[in-house]
Each structure stands twice: as structure tokens, then as C-alpha cells.
Design a protein around this nucleic acid. Sequence first.
DNA 1: GGCGTCGTTAACCCTTGCGTTATATAACCC
DNA 2: GGGTTATATAACGCAAGGGTTAACGACGCC
Lengths: 113, 113
Amino acid sequence: MDALGDPVRRRLVELLADGSRPAGELAAAVSAEFGISQPAASRHLRVLREAGLLTAEADGARRLYAVRPEALDEVQAWVGGVRRFWDQRLDALGTEVARGRRERGGADPATAG
Amino acid sequence: MDALGDPVRRRLVELLADGSRPAGELAAAVSAEFGISQPAASRHLRVLREAGLLTAEADGARRLYAVRPEALDEVQAWVGGVRRFWDQRLDALGTEVARGRRERGGADPATAG
DNA sequence: GGCGTCGTTAACCCTTGCGTTATATAACCC
DNA sequence: GGGTTATATAACGCAAGGGTTAACGACGCC
């Protein structure tokens, strides 16, 4: 998840959302969008690879990159873990979404809106 | 999402998973776990706040922090957007998980194993 | 085998970001 | 009001990360 803290890297993952692509294609895309060089893109791919977000498969002279779904699972699981609480809170239907209310007695935008 | 690229900040969000907490409590926790000072923790909270991940509500001399669920929605939506493709791929049950196959004609470890 | 292409690695610079200590602001309490 | 607690900001140093250019390794083609 640390690896996804960079917008270029997030973009690279996005570009791989609909299937694998050769490194060159990815590099061309982010180079154009972010104005960075091809080696820079390569390094981002490397970081993503080492973080387990992507896999690289040799295809002749090219390298096909692809998303590793399990990694996305982990991310989603993490977010889900945090969100779960809020979901059941909302499930309890505004019983008291903002706990500060009780102390301040103020209306909460989350429940009001 | 950039804000979640830091382990301390992720931890802070985790600590807020089960409800809001005062800054001091959060600071104490991450200070202990990561060996950082209170001001450092405060800055992380600030980053998370400015990123829209957290909200801060004054409670007397304290400041109650809480997760902003909408922000988590965005994260999950992003991941979901990337994952969706993979989900339907897996739904098609190994019809051809590794698209590289067709170009190379070689057996893919993912499908073979 | 020589050449062009694809991609990664190396070496280096500069900015960003995180950490620290010291200090400011604000609320509570007596 | 003075002191204490709670939290944020300021000023600053340092390490890390990301960018660049140059060079290297690997494959494909003729």
C-alpha cells in the first residue's frame, strides 16, 4: 500500500486495470501524462513489482506487466476493515453517527444531510 | 490516497476504525509504536485531515478525530475499479487468465497450476 | 554477426517529507 | 489570574525518493 502513495504509480495500476500491457506502453502513457522520462517510469514499475502490486512476464524483448489481484484484495480488505465499523454505524441509522454530539449537543452534517 | 502511503498514517486511521478519539490518545499510540514524538503525530493527523481522510472536532481543550467514511469510499471505489476487470476474468473461470498465452502459445503457470 | 529496439540499472542531483526541539495558543481548574 | 494540560505551529536538519542522463543487457531481424 505504501507503493500506491504515488500518483504515477496509481496511474500505472489504473492502466493495467483492463489487462496486461508491455512496459513501453505504460511508460509512454505516464511519460506523456506526467512529463517524466522512460527510466523514471521503469523505476516506478519496479517499485510496484517489488511491492507485490504487479507481476512482470517476459515476452520476447518486451515485458508484460499485470496487476496482481491478491494485492488489491489486501488493500480492499484493509479499507473494508476500517469501513466496517462505519457501515454498521450507518446501519444503526443515525443512532448517533457523531459521537461528539452527545457532549456538545450540536447537529452533525453527516446525519443531517 | 497519497496520505495513506505512510505506515504511521495508516495506523492512525486504523486506530480510528472503531470510533473517534482525541488527538492525545492517537499521538500516544503511534508515539509508542513508532517511536516518534507528539508533534510528529500531530503533523500526520494534519496531513490526514487536509487529505480529507479525517475530520477533527473540537471538544473542549481536546480535538476529537474521526474517519471520514466518504474518503474510504473513494479508496475502495478506486480499488474496486481496478479489481472489477479481474473479478469478471475470474468469473469466466480461467477462460484465459493470462492473456500473454495467446501470443506466446506457452502454458501459463497461473492456469496450469 | 551487426544493428535497432525494448527495457533495466547506475550514478548523481535536488526536492520533498519526516523527524526533532522549542514555542505558541487555547481551554480547564483552582 | 496563574498554573496545568492538550494540541498545534515554527524553525530547522537530515535522509529518502524521485527525476535526469548515460550506459548496459537482452532479444529480434536481416
